[in-house]
Nucleic acid binder design. Structure first.
Lengths: 256, 256
DNA sequence: CAGTGGTCTAGACCACGTG
DNA sequence: ACGTGGTCTAGACCACTGC
C-alpha cells in the first residue's frame, strides 16, 4: 500500500539530454492520483490525504503535490475546501449535477422533476453504439429508455446505452426504486464516476412515437442531444441520446 | 505610466483582523492586468511585459505575478508561449475562433464558409435588447443581420445587436469589405475583445421568411441560439440571435 | 548566448473549520 | 490549539526561442 510508486524522476543528465519519456513530476503525480481515484482508493465524497501526506508518500515537495491537485481541481475531479481538506467530486453535489444537466427553465425557476423508466434491456451492441463506447460489436450493452418530466410536463426522452460488463445487475426495478440523478447511482452502485462528456446537438422534428410520449404534436421541433460520457482516464462509459422539449426550457451553455 | 499602482497590500495586522476589502495580492494584480488590457495598453496578438518586469512594476514577487497570469491564461485572456512570452489572446487565432464557433460538420470536414450581409441599421434599443446589453432603452444600437453559408449551403441566419456608442462607423459597406470573423473586426476596428459568452439554445420551427432565406421548408426544425458576449470586466457587448440549419451540421459542446 | 516561461523546492504566514 | 488548504516569497535549474 504505502510502498513508493515509481516516478520517472529524471536525473539532471536525463533532463538535459531531453529523454523522450520525460514529463514533469507534478503530471506524474497527477496520473498516480487519477489511478488511485480509478481503483477506488478514495470514494466520491471522501477526503483524500493532506498535501503533506501525499508529498511524503510520493517523495516530492508539498508544492509539487499542490500543483497536481490544482490541475485535478480545475478539471473537477477533486474539490478543495479550505480548512477541511480535498475531496473526491461526486454527482450528489448540486454543483456537479448542474454541469451535466443543462436544461433550465426560461423563467429561471428550478423545476420539480420526475423520472419514468420505459424500458431496460440487455442487447448486443449496435455497431454505432459499440464504436462510441469503445466495445466490441459482439459485447452486451444495457439499453435504458426513460422519460423525464419537469413540473409534471414530459420534457426529456432519453435513450441510454451502457457497457454491459460494467453495469451488471442494472434492472428496471432497481432503477425504479432509486431516487436522484442516474450518475449518483452509477457512482454508488457500480463505482463509475462520470467526469467529462462530449455532446452533439441538433434540431429535429418529432416522430409520431416520440410526439406521443412527450405529449406534443408530430413534427414539432425537438432538441436532440447525443452525449458520450467519460470516466477517469477518458474511458467512455455511457452513450445517451436525448430529445428535449424546449417550449418552456432552454439548453444553457457558457463559452469560455 | 510606470508609476506604482496602489495595491491594497494589507499589513499583517489588517489581514489578521480580517478587513472586509481584503483580497489576495495576485487577484489585485489580475485586476490591474485586466484594466491594462481593457484600456488597450497591450493590443490583441502583442506580448505583455515579462513576469519579472511586471513583478518590478507592481512591487511583488515574480511568483505572485505568475499566479495572476496563470489565472488569466486559464480564462483565455492571455496565451503563454514558452521561450517567447505571454500574449494577448486574439480572435485571429483558430483556437480562439473555435471556442465561439460551435457548429461543426457531421462528417468532420472543415467547411468553406461565406458571409452575406442582409441589413445593417441603427435603431433605438428594443427593451429586451437594452436589458441584455445593459444600455438604456433610449440608447441607439446597431442591428446587423447576415446569412452565413457553409460549403455554399445557407446555414446560419444571424440577428446581431451592438451598443451604438461603441460601434460607431460600422456600416454594411465596411462589413462587406471585411474578410474573416466578425470578432476579429471588432478587435481591430473598435478595440473590443470578446472574452466570454453565455448561450441559450432551443429547437424552433422555421417561419416562412426564415425558411426562404435559409432555403429550407417552412416549419423545418432550426437550432435557435441566443448569445450574449462579454468583453473585459464582464461587460456585455453583443447580443446575437442565430438560427442554425442542423441537417448536416451539429453544435458541439464539452461538459467539463 | 541571453531572455522567456516552466518546474521544483523550501519556508513563512494567513484564513478557515473543528475541536 | 491544531490541522487543513491559501497566499507570498526566494532561489535554483530546465526547456524553448531567437539572435
Amino acid at each position: 500500500m504505502s510502498d513508493t510508486p515509481s516516478l520517472d524522476r529524471a536525473s539532471d543528465a536525463d533532463r538535459t539530454a531531453g529523454s523522450a519519456a520525460f514529463s514533469p513530476l507534478y503530471q506524474q503525480i497527477k496520473g498516480l492520483l487519477v489511478q488511485s481515484l480509478d481503483r477506488g482508493e478514495w470514494k466520491p465524497g471522501e477526503a483524500i490525504p493532506s498535501e503533506f501526506e501525499l508529498a511524503a508518500r510520493f517523495q516530492v515537495s508539498q508544492g509539487t503535490v499542490r500543483k497536481a491537485i490544482d490541475d485535478l481541481a480545475a478539471e473537477n475531479l477533486l474539490l478543495r475546501r479550505q480548512g477541511k481538506g480535498t475531496f473526491v467530486a461526486t454527482h450528489s453535489e448540486a454543483k456537479v449535477r448542474y454541469r451535466f444537466l443543462r436544461l433550465a427553465a426560461d423563467d429561471g425557476k428550478p423545476p420539480v422533476s420526475g423520472s419514468q423508466i420505459l424500458d431496460c434491456r440487455r442487447v448486443k451492441a449496435p455497431v454505432d453504439v459499440a464504436r462510441l463506447l469503445d466495445v466490441r460489436a459482439a459485447d452486451m450493452v444495457v439499453n435504458l429508455r426513460r422519460l423525464l418530466s419537469f413540473d409534471l410536463t414530459p420534457t426529456i426522452l432519453d435513450d441510454i446505452w451502457l457497457p454491459g460488463s460494467v453495469f451488471r445487475g442494472l434492472t428496471a426495478e432497481s432503477l425504479a426504486r432509486y431516487r436522484g440523478p442516474l450518475y449518483g447511482l452509477f457512482e454508488s452502485e457500480f463505482g463509475v464516476s462520470m467526469v467529462r462528456a462530449d455532446e452533439k446537438i441538433k434540431a429535429v422534428a418529432a416522430t409520431a412515437e416520440q410526439a406521443q410520449l412527450l405529449k406534443i404534436k408530430a413534427a414539432d421541433p425537438l432538441l436532440q442531444v447525443e452525449r458520450v460520457s467519460y470516466t477517469y482516464g477518458d474511458r467512455p462509459m455511457e452513450l445517451r441520446r436525448g430529445l428535449y422539449v424546449t417550449e418552456r426550457f432552454h439548453y444553457r451553455n457558457s463559452l469560455n
